[in-house]
Design a protein around this nucleic acid. Structure first.
Lengths: 196, 196
DNA sequence: GAGAAAAGAGCACGATCGGTCACCTTGGTC
DNA sequence: GACCAAGGTGACCGATCGTGCTCTTTTCTC
């Protein structure tokens, strides 16, 4: 059982890597098994189907995302510094996690947005929660607190900048992607704090 | 030849539809052929390979994008109204073009960003040009004109809002996605015009 | 209307896909 | 050290993948 959990983790790691590069729905069980040093049928002792493996990949990636982006910010009190930490960690996450293939959550979002099923359901639920978290953080930014609509608008922009950063960096290969995103975000923080 | 061009167009239309839903690299020649009422081998009289077909799909989609988004704006003089038209048409494009599968250019961007080849090259080149076009439009927004850096930052934000709109609408199924994007964009126009 | 070229059908190929089954090997427990 | 379940292998299944081949039908041109 100890052994089993270790190989399961190795499988998930490799599967996540391939999913980030080729797409979550296009990972090949054969290739994953080979890379891990297993036979294809050996995989099925850890996951009852390909979809179950994809789901596990998504779950562990979501957990890693929370640990990497949210956890460090959670130690700070609500406010501007916390939001800045979230944004910085978020950008860094999308840069270093699966460095070759890019952020899995982002590519999976584009991939799953029109393919109903448990994968989409899971990602949608988490992303909705994440966006509400951001909204809550913005609400706590000013005194008196922002209106719901203002906070939603700010959270929407914050998230948009992460998407923009990702596209500029990966498809356009723009070396200034991060600087642009940071500048846009700090403008957003400034005018939100001013109460625009 | 007249006949051939017609079926070629039908093939491209169906292939684009499937590419938007399933992903550009996962379109099935069999399914495309069947949907068009052709045999699989019949496809190869119009495209020498699957990749050639994907490339043609991307090319025609890019042309349609330009015709739908840019052409109406090009009739207006540079300035705020033109930028507003571009943004509105862009959002509408992503909503109505391949309504079931979403904007092909967006999903293809996420799909191709780590897969070198002519497909990625084409999309990257066009998207870079498009972003420069937006930057140019922003430059012409104020008198005196915006600095390069300011215009780039504005274009980056505009594009980001389209990405955010797309994700909110399709994955999160947020009914307010368009309203949020429009609000964010008009704020951007306002403060850019003010010279922030 | 004859002839050539284009459009398309049908079949088969090798590869790969996710998945199953029977069998063997290892590791942990009493 | 016996035992049993967990971990893992290899062969194999049917389906589908992109693609090449030969052959027939349609369409355009003179």
């Amino acid at each position: 059982m100890r052994k089993g959990e270790a190989t399961r983790a190795r499988i998930l790691q490799e599967a996540a890597r391939q999913a980030a590069v080729r797409g979550l729905s296009v990972v090949s069980l054969n290739d994953v098994a080979e890379a891990v040093g297993l036979s294809k049928s050996g995989l099925f002792k850890h996951f009852e189907s390909k979809e179950a493996m994809q789901l596990a990949v998504l779950e562990t990636t979501l957990e890693r995302f929370t640990a990497f982006v949210w956890a460090p910010a959670a130690e700070l009190p609500p406010g501007r510094a916390r939001l800045e930490t979230i944004f910085e960690r978020w950008l860094t996450w999308s840069e270093v996690e699966n460095a070759e293939g890019g952020c899995l959550l982002m590519s999976a979002g584009a991939e799953l947005d029109d393919q109903p099923g448990p994968l989409r359901d899971l990602l949608q639920a988490q992303q909705r929660r994440w966006l509400r978290t951001l909204q809550r953080e913005f609400t706590a930014l000013t005194d008196p607190p922002l209106s719901d609509r203002q906070a939603r608008l700010a959270a929407f922009q914050m998230k948009s900048f992460v998407f923009g950063h990702n596209d500029n960096r990966r498809l356009l290969e723009d070396a200034d992607a991060r600087a642009l995103a940071e500048a846009a975000f700090h403008d957003l923080l400034d005018r939100t704090a001013r109460g625009d």
